[in-house]
Simulated scan of single mutants.
Amino acid sequence: MEMSSSSKHPLGVSQDKADVKKQKLDELTKEIPPREERLKLFMDTFKNRAYLEQDEDENEVLSDGTHPMTFRDIASLELDLYETDGFDVQDYSHVGDASVILTCYDPEANINRGAFYLPEMIECAEQAINQYNGEKGKHFGDVHVIKVNVEAVCPYRYYLTFEAHDATEDITETFEAKVDIHIPITERTVDFVRIRQPPRFYCP
């Protein structure tokens, strides 16, 4: 017997509502294009692409082994910022430009070029979680830094990914925080801190 639109679905909702939920689930779980494909689509959105690509020599190598920033590098970094706000970025260590965001600490990926500054990174994460606690009325502590990206501004900025535990509620959350380091170096500003967000993939 055919089920009418007003009849009940096994999940306890009407069939038409179940169909809508399935459609939304299908939309959310549709296959995300590979990053290379997303990057090509993103590059096409630059109205000044021709200007950025002019006189570009991808084979030019600087004395330190890096190359000048290309249009592809610019678009790739902008895509990282769009999708993850700078908390997950590609490897730009081959780019000889101070404006890139570099991963300086990520033990899981065997990146430890910033390990010397780990005590400062931990202090920044603690400052960020204290600000979060004050804003949200929480009691997170016991900070564990997972990953850190750095950008050369003011004079530098940390993109921190870290875990913290709230003993009063017995929960552990992963956080993201952007912290600016000023001159003198002891002055730090937490730009924002939040529970880690999923990527916002570019899928036009």
Rank of each mutant, 00 (worst) to 15 (best):
N130P: 01
D80M: 01
K40C: 05
E2I: 02
E176Q: 15
V148I: 10
S93A: 11
A167E: 15
I101H: 06
A109C: 14
D166P: 04
Y117F: 14
E53D: 14
R49H: 03
N59A: 13
F42A: 01
V89R: 02
K47W: 11
D73W: 02
V13Q: 08
G114K: 05
M3I: 09
L25I: 08
A50Q: 15
G12P: 09
E135G: 05
E58Y: 09
D88R: 10
L52G: 06
E60P: 03
D44I: 06
G12K: 15
K138D: 15
Y92W: 04
T84L: 00
F87Y: 13
D26S: 06
Q90W: 03
F140M: 02
F175G: 01
R35M: 01
I181Y: 07
S4P: 02
Y117N: 08
E37I: 11
V89Q: 03
D142P: 05
P204N: 05
V148P: 00
E135C: 07
H182S: 15
I171E: 10
S99P: 07
D85W: 10
R72L: 05
I171Y: 02
E108W: 08
V190F: 08
A18F: 00
V89M: 07
D57N: 15
D19I: 05
Q197C: 09
E120W: 11
S76L: 05
G114D: 11
Y105I: 05
G114T: 12
E123Q: 13
S6R: 06
F42R: 00
S93W: 01
S99F: 09
E187H: 13
V100E: 02
H144W: 07
T84E: 00
G12F: 13
L11P: 01
S93G: 10
F87L: 07
V190Y: 09
F71E: 01
K138Q: 15
G65V: 11
I185A: 15
F71P: 00
F201I: 00
E56P: 11
K30I: 05
E36T: 11
Y82C: 02
Y105G: 03
E108D: 14
K178V: 08
P199Y: 06
S63W: 14
H94T: 14
G137V: 04
P184I: 07
